[in-house]
């Protein structure tokens, strides 16, 4: 397997796919539809709730699921960098305007920035929500064989969205492998991302332009090869999808029951809100 890893903080598509192709674990045998239903439930729940306890417990459950599926937890924490940065950049401004008990204040001369308890809860809740969705999405992607995933897209999405997704697959891998190869070449001659951007910005821009030109050229040739086999604008995913079994319903049922129990029984949750 060729690695297309650009940085340890960016999810490695090759690694994700290689985990997805394993068949040995319990979760890889669970129907993709079951896991997809789980994803919808998770999204629904984190959209509805603003409760820190529910978010915390849900995050721990999903992290547990991720770990029990034999997926790499250390790498997951490294991949959290991007969602954490995203959340912080998003709430970095509004967190100071939340009403509540002040925890500390930053004097900026003309004005002061005050962090309240509600502001802190907001940032932690949003962080947890982001991590929940990222962890479950990765769990879903890394335990669902790619052919099932693409067949689901084919069945769920209307044309041309399904076509774009299905055709983007190889293109994405090829572009990533090309980018990975160029990064290797840069590193092999003493360059690095930060170093190269600073010192050799122009060359770096040219390298990126080259990746896109080559990718475009390759996409053209792929298109030609498709026409040579009778492509007429419609590509059909041929893989049969496994149907959800009893175990799948049990997993979803257990998940819903667990959340209901948390909402009803954990003190001071006060329901979803």
């Amino acid at each position: 397997m060729s690695s297309t890893m650009i940085s340890s903080h960016i999810p490695d598509l090759d690694l994700i796919t290689s985990y997805a192709q394993r068949e040995g674990t319990f979760f890889s045998r669970v129907s993709p539809w079951t896991k997809f239903t789980g994803l919808l439930l998770v999204i629904l729940l984190i959209t509805l709730t603003r409760n820190l306890v529910i978010c915390g417990v849900l995050y721990l459950i999903i992290l547990g699921l991720y770990a029990s599926a034999g997926l790499p937890v250390k790498k997951l924490f490294a991949w959290y960098t991007l969602p954490v940065l995203f959340v912080i950049s998003l709430v970095g401004i509004m967190v100071w305007t939340e009403p509540g008990t002040p925890l500390f204040s930053l004097n900026m001369g003309l004005f002061a920035l005050t962090l309240t308890d509600n502001g802190l809860i907001l940032i932690i809740t949003l962080l947890l929500k982001a991590l929940i969705s990222v962890t479950y999405s990765l769990f879903f992607l890394m335990t669902t064989r790619y052919q099932h995933f693409s067949a689901m897209i084919y069945r769920i999405f209307p044309s041309p969205l399904d076509q774009i997704f299905l055709l983007a697959y190889r293109y994405l891998f090829l572009t990533l492998s090309m980018t990975g190869a160029i990064f290797k070449a840069v590193r092999s001659r003493g360059g690095g991302i930060i170093h190269s951007v600073r010192v050799q910005g122009r060359i770096f821009a040219e390298v990126f332009a080259l990746v896109f030109i080559r990718s475009f050229d390759r996409a053209e040739r792929v298109h030609q090869a498709m026409i040579a086999r009778g492509y007429n604008g419609k590509y059909e995913a041929g893989t049969d999808m496994p149907k959800p079994g009893l175990s799948g319903f049990c997993v979803i049922g257990a998940f819903v029951c667990a959340i209901a129990l948390i909402v009803l029984m954990v003190p001071n949750t006060g329901g979803l809100y």
Binding site: L167, R170, R218, Q224, A225, A237, G238
Partner: peptide, 10 residues
């Protein structure tokens, strides 16, 4: 250039 589908079968 020729193999574009998700799996060999596809």
């Amino acid at each position: 250039d020729q193999l574009f589908a998700p799996t060999v079968l596809d």
